[in-house]
Simulated assay, not measured.
Amino acid sequence: MDLFSRSWTALRAAVAGLRDEDFGQPSGCSGWLVQDLVCHLVIDAQDVLITLVTPAEGEPTVDAVTYWSVGDQASAGDDPLDALIVRLAAAYQEPGLLKFHLDDVGSAAGRAAELADRGARVSTQDQVLTVGDYLSAYVLEWTLHHLDLIAQLPHVAGPPAEGLARSRAMLEAIAGAPFPASLADSDALLIGTGRRAPAGDEESELGRLVDKLPLVLG
């Protein structure tokens, strides 16, 4: 099973195992509860399905790393889409309905990814890239959101080690520099994307790299 499938399967399994009360806990995404994050994952799954059936011609314009743009600052929560997701998540009312929708759409996205030709070219966000690079880019998406999911839920299993390692490598490529070897993969991802601030000793180990952080991915 490739890293896209392994990471996505693990994330969906983690959501499937959540207790009802877990949905009202804060997630690692600023301003979002767990229920909001899960609703966002439904939208992500829809995006995967849409992209995989949007063929493109011409040479790729981005790859798995350059697919990601780096913004100046994280969303303040007033983005129209962010606000829509919060309202949509609340409309589910019962966590079981949100679980069901993610399982339904998420399973379809997973099957579509398994069946897709990795060498084919697709279009998304006005960019062209191979299916392989697109799915590889989403390993970072799934891994970061898996870390967001468990931020306040220590009883929930985290992302696969292989996905963490691959995501770290991609984030280092985006940053143009490696993170200190003393940092665990999960810590490198959390600190690198601004999900938590580095401690004093971590900041000193980051050296000049700290000036580039956080990397706000979009």
Score class of each variant (00 low, 15 high):
residue 8 W to H: 13
residue 14 A to D: 07
residue 15 V to A: 10
residue 16 A to V: 05
residue 21 E to A: 15
residue 23 F to Q: 01
residue 24 G to P: 01
residue 26 P to G: 09
residue 31 G to L: 03
residue 32 W to V: 03
residue 33 L to M: 11
residue 37 L to G: 04
residue 38 V to A: 03
residue 39 C to V: 02
residue 41 L to G: 05
residue 43 I to P: 00
residue 44 D to L: 09
residue 47 D to N: 12
residue 49 L to E: 13
residue 53 V to H: 13
residue 55 P to L: 10
residue 55 P to Q: 08
residue 57 E to L: 12
residue 62 V to N: 06
residue 64 A to H: 04
residue 65 V to A: 12
residue 65 V to Y: 11
residue 67 Y to L: 09
residue 71 G to C: 08
residue 73 Q to G: 09
residue 76 A to E: 14
residue 78 D to M: 08
residue 79 D to C: 05
residue 86 V to H: 11
residue 86 V to N: 04
residue 87 R to E: 15
residue 88 L to D: 12
residue 88 L to R: 12
residue 95 P to S: 04
residue 100 F to I: 02
residue 101 H to K: 10
residue 101 H to I: 07
residue 104 D to F: 14
residue 104 D to K: 09
residue 105 V to E: 09
residue 105 V to T: 13
residue 106 G to W: 11
residue 110 G to L: 02
residue 114 E to Q: 15
residue 115 L to A: 15
residue 117 D to E: 14
residue 119 G to C: 10
residue 120 A to D: 12
residue 122 V to I: 15
residue 123 S to C: 10
residue 123 S to H: 06
residue 126 D to I: 00
residue 127 Q to I: 10
residue 127 Q to R: 15
residue 128 V to P: 08
residue 135 L to F: 06
residue 136 S to Q: 11
residue 137 A to K: 05
residue 139 V to S: 03
residue 147 L to D: 02
residue 150 I to K: 08
residue 151 A to N: 08
residue 153 L to F: 05
residue 154 P to N: 13
residue 154 P to T: 14
residue 157 A to C: 06
residue 157 A to T: 11
residue 161 A to Y: 07
residue 162 E to W: 02
residue 163 G to N: 02
residue 163 G to Q: 02
residue 163 G to Y: 01
residue 165 A to Q: 08
residue 167 S to I: 00
residue 167 S to R: 01
residue 169 A to G: 06
residue 172 E to Y: 00
residue 173 A to S: 13
residue 177 A to D: 12
residue 180 P to Q: 10
residue 181 A to N: 06
residue 181 A to V: 14
residue 183 L to S: 01
residue 187 D to F: 08
residue 188 A to T: 06
residue 189 L to Q: 07
residue 194 G to L: 05
residue 201 D to T: 15
residue 206 L to P: 03
residue 207 G to Q: 04
residue 210 V to Y: 09
residue 214 P to K: 06
residue 214 P to M: 03
